[in-house]
Write a protein that binds this DNA or RNA. Structure first.
Length: 474
RNA sequence: GGCGCCGUAGCCAAGUGGUAAGGCAGAGGUCUGCAAAACCUCUAUGCGGCGGUUCAAAUCCGCCCGGCGCCUCCA
């Protein structure tokens, strides 16, 4: 059994076959850095992280590109409102995004492409499309893509099967174009653009790039220069990007290269709150830093996200977060127990086959993380039972190894709270004192010491093997 | 109006033809001086409703009810 992934292009779960294995080129749509990304945005990034990690687990050599949209309507508006130049506004949010990414343990992409750093390639792409008459200049100085010139336009979003709602937002477009479906490649500069320094001179006029243009230009630039190819293995993003964003990317890229832009299109579903999608528009959003300020373990958020299949809407709630936290704690306890039981023994790897097999089967089937997680928890119960029955250190070491391999992908074990050396020494001394008191039958004194330790945020646990302690996180 | 998705235990959520994974909560138990923690066990004769196909349906088909998303710059 090998990896199969749902492909929006075919509307099926297809076998995944990269162009030139083991290399996989992965382009993931990143944030627009006009503000802090909310956890709905991060759900998508976490889905992409899962995809990336599982591809790596499967032996592929992944090259991941993520774009940062630092010039578009919203960034310009926000900069203008703040009265600063564009970069001054976007840079802090870019840094904030990286912080949030690290907090949520999302693996950094190999390259982050900022739109403003690729104006040259974008201009070239527009010029190319103008030259082959797929694009045209309008009276207001903008450049549009003539959708009618691209035969397969609408294939990704199955546009031919749809009908536009009568009187929908079509009339409200601010720019002049030949056909209502045509979209802007290049937008003529307006005063607001100039004000924030978001305008560039080009052979076809002063202006700024349309949103869709950046992804085509950046993806092509990166894979051409690094691998000499013009086709991505996978292009991923949120479902809302299917139309028009990804549809237009295909039209631009394939219109210019004549080659398939991406072989595999993957889209993650929304995160919802009380049945509605999380969105800045609705004001029902929460940012990653909100979670961090509440002291939430990022493992809990990851667990919550991976509890639902990526193509299903994920309902977010505090109760769900608490449940996730509880189950993640259990995984941490389990791992501690294995480490203790394994000591320095040589790993007996025959022991963990079952988990490995089940984990793979689940993940190979279109990244079924909920099922993979279920396999992990079944493993936890089974191994605990065997450990209770006195399984040896070689087996424990083997289990630990296999467990950790699944965690390389899911990464949902709690991070250990760091404990200063002097605090650790103090705790050790107090525990010794308490043991003496217990031995002497002076339980009042023993309980007092337990209280003393607890006051410093340390939780004491009496086990058959003696007392253990851990720092309570948050 | 068009296209698409979803409805499974108190909550979250897998399963898409062979007789209901997993997590949280709850109950019981083991351990313990007590406690906490930890661990183990148990918890849906039923999968929105009604029909149909089939030896067999949560899974396929039809109708109905309820919820959600997209339809030109939202992850």
């Amino acid at each position: 059994m090998s990896l199969r992934l749902y492909n929006t292009l075919t509307r099926r779960v297809d076998p995944f076959e990269p162009l030139a294995p083991p290399r996989v080129t992965l382009y993931t749509c990143g944030p627009t850095v006009w503000n802090f990304a909310h956890i709905g945005n991060f759900r998508t990034f976490l889905f992409e992280d899962l995809l990336r990690r599982y591809l790596e687990y499967s032996g592929y050599d992944v090259f991941q590109i993520m774009n940062l949209t630092d010039v578009d309507d919203r960034t310009i508006q926000a900069a203008a409102k703040a009265g600063v130049v564009l970069t001054k506004h976007t840079e802090p949010f870019t840094q904030a995004f990286f912080e949030d990414r690290d907090y949520l343990r999302i693996k950094p992409a190999h390259v982050y492409t900022r739109a403003t750093a690729y104006i040259g390639p974008m201009v070239e792409l527009v010029q190319q499309l103008l030259d082959c008459r797929i694009a045209y200049r309008s009276e207001d100085g903008s450049v549009y893509y003539a959708v009618g010139k691209f035969d397969t336009y609408g294939r990704l979003s199955q546009l031919d099967k749809r009908e536009l709602k009568a009187g929908a937002r079509v009339a409200s477009d601010e720019y002049a174009k030949d056909n209502v479906q045509d979209f802007a490649l290049w937008k003529a500069a307006v005063p607001e653009d100039e004000k924030v320094g978001a305008a560039w001179d080009t052979p076809f006029g002063r202006g700024r790039p349309g949103w869709h243009l950046e992804c085509s230009a950046m993806a092509l630039t990166e894979i051409r220069s690094r691998f000499g190819i013009e086709t991505l293995d996978i292009h991923a993003g949120g479902v809302d990007l299917i139309f028009p964003h990804h549809e237009n990317e295909i039209a631009q890229s394939e219109g210019a290269t004549g080659r398939t832009f991406a072989r595999h299109w993957m889209h993650g579903e929304f995160l919802t709150v009380e049945g509605t999608k999380m969105s800045k528009r609705f004001g029902n959003f929460l940012t990653a830093r909100d979670l961090r300020e509440e002291g939430l373990d990022p493992a809990a958020f990851r667990r919550l996200v991976f509890l639902t299949h990526y193509r299903q809407q994920l309902s977010f709630s505090d109760a769900g977060l608490r449940a996730a936290q509880g189950s993640v704690t259990r995984l941490g306890e389990f791992r501690d127990r294995l480490v203790l039981a394994a000591r320095t023994a040589k790993a007996d790897l025959s022991a963990g086959n079952e988990l490995e097999t089940q984990f793979r089967a689940a993940m190979d089937d279109d990244l079924n993380a909920p099922e993979a997680m279920a396999a992990v928890f079944s493993f936890v119960t089974n191994v605990n039972r065997e450990l209770d029955a006195g399984a040896g250190p070689e087996k424990a070491a083997g289990w630990l190894k296999v467990f950790d391999r699944t965690m390389d992908v899911l990464d949902v074990t709690p991070r250990k709270a760091a404990v200063a050396a002097d605090l650790a020494a103090w705790v050790a001394e107090r525990i010794a004192a308490r043991q003496q008191a217990r031995k002497a039958g002076d339980y009042a004194a023993a309980d007092a010491i337990r209280g003393e330790i607890a006051a410093r945020g340390i939780e004491l646990e009496d086990t058959p093997a003696g007392p253990r302690w851990k720092k309570r996180d948050a």
